[in-house]
Design a protein around this nucleic acid. Structure first.
Lengths: 242, 242
DNA sequence: AAGTGGTCTAGACCACCGA
DNA sequence: CGGTGGTCTAGACCACTTC
């Protein structure tokens, strides 16, 4: 009954919640596996069952845990189908959901643009990571985008493009403990630039969707800035609004 | 101490929550005014303070109430700036938020299209209300849209266009007790149809945003279907994703 | 100082799951 | 059947607002 990590002061259930979240991120309980029972965890943290419940229920509301009456509490599995990142979806014209594959064609350190500096709230002189990639839907290049990350937020980010997976949000969470909780997007119509014409294989006069997105973590700090150029001739962009 | 509305069975705090929500919708406590204290309400419903707290906290998470420590619990004020309907925002090109004004040019009963029937989950033969309107931003016509509502969901909907306000979601909530909690959108690029050319004053070749939206209430039932054609030359469409 | 919401506890009983 | 989470209670103490 080693009374695990020391707790400082702040609402008790908040501390417990954070402690449990840390252990989830550290991978102590893998996605889908079950946590100890409420009673065991309450004893371990030296709090009442009610307080521990409040922590678990908060994590459940945030989609980190799933509770099964009579069975136990499990770590939520986050895959592409899950509800954890319910935005950034694409469908074909019949409404059937499709999943993009990515091909990175640029991955390097750079100076942030003014928009990037503002969106990510960067100190002067901080460099950023630029990920340039094309995303394919049904083997067809549909999205040309640049993802921008702060080096401060993502130290030791790998610059080998094989090490950067398709699903960036999952990557942020699993390797940097950064959880995207919210995003804002600006959506406009635009004409393709030369890179779009080449990468997306479209005519100069073919209008594209221009989506500018800033993502935030649970503490409301900006995480990622992204500019996407999207061809909606054969697919539609879907947004889930809550 | 009239022990108000009878309660049937289901989780107690759910019943209390619903009962309180009904009184908010009925206007018993106007937006911004304070509810009785926890203790008073608990006594009134004949439940413990803890159970009542759970109901109030759930309503607070849903943005219906605001709690002030030491002061009391008030009904949340829902205006255009509030967070209750955090979607469907527009900005000018400098990021400054702007609010649309509407001009209704069509308001009548009609047969639903196949898409409308499917989205609103309509029984065969049910008629729908069609609201056709142009929305202005900075005195410039920017959006041409058709809003579709089920007559079953909105009985006695007024067909005098002066009686239908700008802010439809607030209208649904205040006059029909229907709260929009979630929406899904499909976003594409399209070219204007003849009505768009006339209403939005654009060229035939000028591409527009095509947004198809279905809105759902707290019980996950579809409420509204909407097709919007948007000119993003001078304004951008913003989405808040959670 | 009185009244409000915020936190926390301890214990009771229920509903569900699995062996 | 025992163990799990789900609900509900009663009461304690704290932090904040208002007077």
């Amino acid at each position: 009954m080693t009374p695990s990590p020391k707790l400082t002061f702040a609402p008790l259930y908040e501390q417990v919640k954070k402690a449990i979240l840390d252990r989830i991120i550290a991978g102590e309980w893998g996605p889908g596996s079950f946590l100890p029972s409420e009673i065991a965890l309450a004893k371990e943290y030296g709090v009442s069952q009610g307080t521990l419940r409040k922590a678990l229920n908060a994590l459940t509301r945030e989609k980190r845990l799933v509770r099964y009456q009579g069975k136990g509490t499990a770590v939520a599995v986050l895959d592409e189908d899950s509800d954890l990142f319910p935005f950034f979806l694409f469908s074909d014209k019949h409404g059937k959901r499709v999943y993009p594959l990515s091909q990175i064609y640029g991955l390097r350190l750079g100076q942030p643009s003014e928009a990037e500096r503002a969106a990510l709230n960067l100190a002067p002189g901080v460099k950023v990571i630029h990920i340039d990639r094309v995303r394919m839907l049904d083997d067809c290049p549909v999205i040309n985008e640049r993802v921008t990350l702060s080096t401060a937020r993502f130290p030791d980010f790998s610059f080998e493009s094989d090490k950067v997976p398709n699903t960036l949000y999952e990557h942020y969470q699993l390797h940097f403990g950064v959880t995207v909780a919210r995003a804002t997007e600006q959506i406009e119509v635009t004409l393709p630039d030369p890179a779009d014409i080449k990468r997306l294989n479209v005519e100069r006069s073919h209008p594209l969707l221009l989506v500018t997105r800033t993502s935030f973590d649970l503490q409301e700090q900006p995480v990622e800035f992204r500019i996407s150029h999207i061809n909606t001739s054969h697919h539609v962009y879907r947004a889930e609004l809550r």
